[in-house]
């Protein structure tokens, strides 16, 4: 028998007045997965996270959070990091960890002990007893993350955790997320920084205007975006457009010959088109295959970039 998922949403809709902020959303997150919840601002990410946490009731649909129909019933097993730091500014990191840990059922002393270890691991050992308001944003964000971890949550929900962090702190946060996932926790985070999702996520869901536009692995998301070839030589756009798998061609002149940017049809591999070109004996001096990234997939699937071809089934 398959293990129950950490999180499952079925046809979840949330309306504010006449406006559906989240519309018929459904996805499933397996236990121990790192799940990226992606979408532009106003896509409904925060509302969805709040429904998972039990702070906002869905207008219709069903949620299953760690086996409970309401996130509030399993609040002690969830760790939540809001977009802003969410800590009492006059508390020290150890006091905050003791306070928030004890709310989650961990004795304050044990929570402080664990926080000390985690903070020292993040290089914040010198700031354990400094008031949070005196820490930099990056340091405070890391303290906030540590406070969400002191009770060893089974489900970790992070709302835009990389926002405002410098590359060093981003790296530290990525490491921490991987460690938690390796320890068996399910990590759900929302972001619009694609590089993090690309490196971290086992699964991503893309949301646009309250609706799901993609659900799958990063690789699957990339494959939705047409591949791209750069060809240079004495070539004409008409000849290249006639090759199999070519969807669109854009040409620019070079001192010698032309540079052609070739968009391939979805599902077509670059080598198929290149093979056909070489078989046809076209005078190609230089070629380059451009692998689409999650960033392009995001722009395409959320409909925020008009210059990419439409994708069937998105």
């Amino acid at each position: 028998m398959a293990e129950a998922p950490a999180l499952e949403l079925t046809e979840v809709t949330r309306r504010f007045g006449d406006r559906a902020v989240v519309d018929g959303l459904g996805f499933r997150v397996e236990r121990g997965a790192v799940f990226g919840f992606l979408g532009p601002n106003g896509a409904g990410k925060t509302t969805t996270l709040r429904m998972i946490l039990g702070l906002v009731a869905p207008t219709s649909g069903r949620l299953d959070v760690l086996g409970a129909a309401d996130g509030r019933r399993v609040r002690d097993r969830i760790g939540f990091l809001p977009e802003e730091r969410g800590l009492h500014p006059r508390m020290t990191p150890l006091q905050a960890a003791g306070f928030l840990g004890s709310l989650k059922g961990v004795p304050a002393q044990a929570a402080r002990r664990k926080a000390r270890t985690l903070l020292e691991g993040l290089g914040l050992g010198a700031s354990l007893n400094t008031q949070i308001r005196r820490l930099s944003k990056g340091m405070a964000q890391q303290v906030a993350l540590v406070c969400t971890l002191v009770h060893d949550p089974d489900l970790l929900i992070l709302d835009e955790p990389f926002s405002g962090l410098d590359p060093m702190h981003q790296q530290g946060l990525e490491t921490l997320i991987r460690e938690r996932a390796a320890a068996g926790a399910t990590v759900v985070f929302s972001t619009h920084v694609m590089s993090h999702a690309e490196r971290l996520c086992d699964q991503v869901v893309l949301l646009a205007r309250g609706r799901k536009v993609f659900d799958g692995t990063v690789q699957q998301a990339r494959s939705r975006v047409p591949g791209r070839l750069i060809l240079e030589g004495d070539l004409t756009p008409e000849v290249i457009a006639a090759l199999p798998g070519v969807a669109e061609v854009a040409a620019s002149d070079l001192p010698e010959g032309r540079r052609l940017e070739v968009w391939l049809s979805p599902g077509v591999e670059a080598h198929q088109t290149l093979s056909a070109a070489f078989r046809a004996g076209l005078p190609i001096r230089r070629f380059e295959s451009r692998e689409p990234g999650l960033h392009e997939a995001f722009l395409l699937l959320t409909g925020t970039r008009a210059d990419l071809p439409e994708v069937a089934g998105a």
């Binding site: 996130g71 969830i78 809001p82 977009e83 802003e84 969410g86 800590l87 500014p89 709310l103 989650k104």
Partner: peptide, 12 residues
């Protein structure tokens, strides 16, 4: 300070 968001996920 948005502490409230963390608190309402930790207590009623």
């Amino acid at each position: 300070s948005r502490v409230i968001e963390v608190l309402v996920t930790s207590a009623h």
